[in-house]
Design a binder for these strands. Structure first.
Lengths: 110, 110
DNA sequence: TATATTTATCGTAATATTGCAATATAATTA
DNA sequence: TAATTATATTGCAATATTACGATAAATATA
């Protein structure tokens, strides 16, 4: 008990849930927002921007990276992070699918 | 420790994280997928569709409802659920904002 | 009114998440 | 090579999530 039964769902459902989970924290939304603003930055910049300790930011970046929402490349002692448009596109396609398939335009459809 | 510091983020960031959190489970994605297919249904239908107990489905529906992704109305002894297009629109707008603001089209931007 | 039907709530066990201090790692610079 | 800089990892405490049996609540039906 307490364990998500991933085997019961499709791989697409599991993947989308994983991407949503990566965005399911205001700090990680704030990181995405900041990356959108500055295009690319290093971990230290985010530590300066948000009110969280360096290990906490590092952990959040790891989670965003693990689902492919961001990517990082080594630049000297630092690591440069940016948003991965491919994963954003995947998410966008799903939300668009929901929006277009919605037959009920009423606020009270049932 | 262990508590999300919501005060440090904007209300928009907190709201988006809450909507993402509601989608951060394959069972809830599966519920949305099912609702998309059948347009509207009752809790019992989802219990028959997914491999989860009734209290578990009820809990998942509660979470989707709490962020406004779905809505329910009483129909006799049952409750009819459907997707709320307003909240979907809110999410769509955010993803679209990310997609359009993305300056880096390369797979390796940094 | 008793029974059936449908959903919600409560309580609880197992597991996951969050945040950070301490520390490790890895590349650069003096 | 020693010190510096930037990030990752480890370990831990506090809290949250997930799942379900038992049960409550609310409406419909016989």
């Amino acid at each position: 008990m307490g364990v998500t039964k991933t085997i019961y769902y499709t791989s697409e459902q599991n993947e989308l849930a994983a991407i949503a989970k990566a965005l399911a924290h205001p700090a990680r939304i704030a990181i995405i927002d900041y990356l959108l603003k500055v295009n690319k930055c290093i971990c230290k910049d985010i530590v300066n921007e948000l009110s969280l300790a360096q290990p906490t930011i590092s952990q959040h970046l790891k989670e965003l990276k693990s689902v492919g929402l961001i990517q990082g490349s080594i630049e000297g002692t630092a690591i440069c992070y940016c948003i991965n448009h491919k994963t954003v596109g995947l998410l966008q396609a799903y939300i668009l699918k929901i929006a277009t398939q919605l037959k009920c335009e009423d606020t009270n459809c049932c």
